[in-house]
Structures are given as C-alpha cells and as structure tokens.
Simulated assay, not measured.
Amino acid sequence: MISVRAVKTGSIRIRPSHRAGRMDHPVWRRRLDMLRDRAWTEPLPIYTYLVEHPEGLFLFDSGETARTATKGFFPWWHPFFKLGVDIHVAPDDEIGPRLRTLGIDPDADLRAVVLSHLHHDHADGLHNFENTRIVVGDENWRASRGLRGTISGALPKHWPSWFDPERIAFAGPQAGPFARTHPITADGRIFAVETPGHMLGHLSVVVRADDTTYFLAGDATYDEKLLCDRVVDGASYDVATSLATLDAIAEFSRAEPTVLLPAHDPLAEERLAEKRPLHA
C-alpha cells in the first residue's frame, strides 16, 4: 500500500505580488514589486509530505525551523528576508518533533528525504536527518550554494556541516509531458520530474498509489487555483519557463487522476483527504 500524509511545519506570510506576480513585468520589476508591496497574504502552511511505500518511508522537503525567530538568522543585508516574509514556526512545529509525534525517528526511520529545492522554507529542517539519504537536483544544488544561493533565497550558511546530498540528474523514462524522470523507488512508483521556474533545478515528485496519483509540487505553484489560471509567482526567474511547468503539470493530470499537493496551498490537506483530483 502507498499513502501520502501532509505534515505542516508552521506557516508563512508573503506579499501578494510574491504569490502571484505581474506576468507582463520583467524579472527585476517583478522582484521590485515584491519589495514595495505592503500587503500580506493570509498565513500559508509550510507543508512537507510523508510517503509510505512498501520500500519504506520517504519525506518530500524538510520544512522551516523555529530558529528563524532568532536575531541574525537571516542575512541582514538581504531585502527579501527583511521585507518579504513573515514566518511563524514554534519549536514543536519543526519536522523533527512532528515526525516523532507520529512515532517516526527522523534520523533512523526514513529511506530518503527528497528536496524540491533548497530555499530556506524547504531546507531549514535538514539538521534532523544527519544519517538519512538526502536527494536534491544537481542543478538546484549548484544554484543554491554560496552568495548566489543566498541571493536567490537559500541559506547555505545554515546547512549542517555534514550536508552532502545525493545530487541527481534526470535520465529516466518519459512520463507524459515530462521528458525525463528520476526514480526514487526501485519499482518506479515514486519518481522525480523537472519543474523549473520558481528556482533553477526545482523538482517535483510523483507518487503513483493504487487508486490515484499524487503530485508533490513544492513551489512549482503556490496553489491549485494559480495553476489552473496559469498565474506565475513573483519569485520566478523566467515566466515562460514557469508557464511551461504549469502546463506540463496540467497535461499530466489530464492523463491520469492526480491530486496536486503544493507546499503552501491552504486547501492541500482537504484535497488529500478527499483524493480530489486536479481539473485543469
């Protein structure tokens, strides 16, 4: 049996122009819009997803940390962290405690942690998984390191000293509109696909259960409605690339019933409980 569980690790507010950017603006203007915006979205969940599979337990993303409330955690010089995010994560909200409440030892009971990308709210929980296989796309790994990574929203200075993930390339068989895949399980029922746009090398994970398919989308889109409306987030480095990703997810869902599970969609748990497929 294969199942998926949403595990919430706190919440985040972002600027409305971050959640849905002006698609007729160039990249620099879209990002300036995010900094000038003074409104906030409602608190959005920070979801990770736990997949139970006959080969073991797999976690998609590691969530955020309560240390974001500590002075100096974010780089003082970075305008996005000063102006663009409002994070609320209690110590018990972190992925380690959340998994322990489910009877899971985060550092012993998982077959792998797969990261959609290395932005802070997807990778700050890494310290819980020192002895666990951690998988990230090679392109995203290269884009997230050093000053370049920090500018783009990753926090490599907070990565654990032991962090040396398995960096994957995509050479597996085609899956619908996704030309290349990467198997996560030996039976091929969990596999990664390339979903760039929000960040270089962003990936998503497809889970084919017995009765439906789950698409663990990370930040490929912030919610189902945005995908259906073909609206790209303000952080995207390239609107055309992001739109191609949204269209590929929609095309994939038309070929097989697919439950869309982004990282910050307030309705994701409801759709998951009902196994309600995407209609795009």
Rank of each mutant, 00 (worst) to 15 (best):
V136N: 01
V51N: 03
D124G: 14
R38V: 14
A6V: 10
F170W: 06
D109L: 08
R100Y: 13
R5C: 07
K225F: 15
S152K: 14
L44M: 07
G103T: 03
E55S: 12
L278C: 08
Y222V: 11
S17V: 14
A209M: 13
F178P: 04
H117G: 00
A143T: 02
D164M: 10
A273W: 11
S161M: 12
P156E: 04
K225M: 15
G234Q: 00
T212W: 12
Y237N: 00
R142G: 01
H53D: 10
F178W: 09
Q174N: 10
F163N: 00
A123L: 07
D233T: 11
P45I: 06
L203N: 09
Y47I: 03
V207I: 14
P262G: 05
L110M: 09
P45M: 10
E224R: 11
G218D: 07
A90I: 12
K71W: 13
H127W: 14
E166P: 02
W159F: 15
G172E: 04
E139Y: 06
P156D: 00
G218K: 07
I46F: 02
F163E: 00
L83A: 06
V4D: 04
A263K: 07
T132W: 02
L147M: 13
V114G: 02
L50S: 07
I249G: 05
L267F: 14
D107S: 10
D210M: 09
G153T: 01
T150G: 08
P45V: 06
N128K: 07
A169N: 04
L227P: 10
S242A: 14
